[in-house]
């Protein structure tokens, strides 16, 4: 995976030099450990700044919405699924895109690593299988597989589902993964326990909307929380308003979410709001056999009516 960066730069440089695309969207080196910044390159010189490592967790499909240029975009498995979803939802055209596919082995979770280290991490280096975090008076190495983002550790679509270029041979997909243990645990709770569980989960929320805005699905021109006529949700910190925001946002992602983890990764206070979207993802799989963003040719389940659609919930 460490050779990906060079290959990305080569492909991006070629696409820009030949005029095949107007810009290439990827990542450039971050200014602090375990962070990279989404970046657009408009010429081969800028393309030389593109990087790739285990800290490229932000979903770049988010940067495609309604763009008019011809774009080269670096895409992991989850990014590619959101690109498919974007195309299906008419937020970008397939012809505008050159997808530079990146077979992914998962992104590391900077919070997990920070929690395992005794002080501030000032530098992080990585090999194919390990990351080493150093700080004042400590240096600790971790196997990447132990410190992956939770969604990455459960991922079964690491290879891009659509691509025009591929930076390396596909990686082996994870098999036999139990993707929904956490959802089942919540499902097993009594309504009272569940209410309390979500109350605790959401208590640190400051409504910065980083989860919503990092999500490629959340492209509404005006989000329902921002509507003022009528105003659906209060703007303050009342727990019922905070909860309404999180639940409705999750429902709007039903049948569309790819569990890319951008929402959780972006949260400044570490809320795992994926537990909501995962429940919907699980239901879509159980009820409709559906996983979002795998094909350009199949309409999503909430988009079509089939006589065989389950309707046991209707009395």
């Amino acid at each position: 995976m460490l050779s990906y960066a060079e290959k990305i730069r080569e492909i991006a440089g070629r696409l820009l030099a030949s005029g095949a695309v107007n810009m290439v969207i990827g990542f450039r080196q971050g200014t602090i450990p375990m962070m990279n910044e989404p970046h657009f390159a408009k010429n081969p010189a800028e393309a030389a700044k593109l990087v790739w490592d285990s800290h490229c967790g932000i979903n770049l499909a988010n940067y495609l919405t309604d763009r008019k240029e011809k774009i080269g975009i670096v895409a992991k498995g989850c990014d590619s699924r959101n690109i498919v979803t974007h195309i299906i939802e008419n937020k970008i055209k397939r012809e505008q895109l050159v997808v530079i596919g990146v077979p992914c082995q998962g992104m590391v979770d900077k919070r997990k690593i920070a929690l395992k280290c005794p002080g501030e991490i000032t530098a992080v280096i990585e090999t194919e299988t390990q990351v080493t975090a150093t700080g004042n008076g400590f240096s600790q190495s971790f196997d990447k597989k132990d410190v992956l983002q939770h969604n990455c550790s459960l991922c079964i679509h690491r290879n891009p589902v659509i691509h025009d270029e591929l930076v390396a041979a596909p990686v082996e997909e994870q098999k036999g993964i139990d993707r929904y243990a956490d959802v089942r645990a919540v499902e097993a709770m009594s309504p009272e326990q569940r209410w309390k569980y979500f109350e605790d989960l959401l208590s640190p929320c400051v409504r910065c909307y980083a989860c919503r805005n990092a999500c490629p699905l959340c492209y509404c021109p005006t989000c329902f929380v921002d509507e003022s006529r009528p105003q659906w949700v209060g703007k303050g910190q009342d727990p019922s308003d905070v909860r309404t925001f999180h639940f409705l946002r999750a429902y709007h992602c039903a049948g569309r979410c790819t569990d890319c983890g951008s929402c959780e990764r972006s949260c400044p206070v570490g809320i795992n709001m994926r537990v909501f979207t995962k429940k919907l993802e699980k239901d879509c799989l159980d009820l409709f056999g559906w996983e979002a963003g795998l094909s350009l040719d199949v309409r999503p389940p909430l988009d079509v009516y089939r006589p065989s659609d389950p309707n046991d919930f209707i009395k």
Binding site: E37, P38, H39, F40, N62, Y63, V206, R207, C208, Y209, A210, R212, N213, A214, S266, P268
Partner: peptide, 13 residues
């Protein structure tokens, strides 16, 4: 501004 997602993290923190 390219990378910005227009969340309130910077201003709220």
């Amino acid at each position: 501004s390219f990378a910005c997602i227009n969340c309130g993290t910077c201003t709220y923190s």
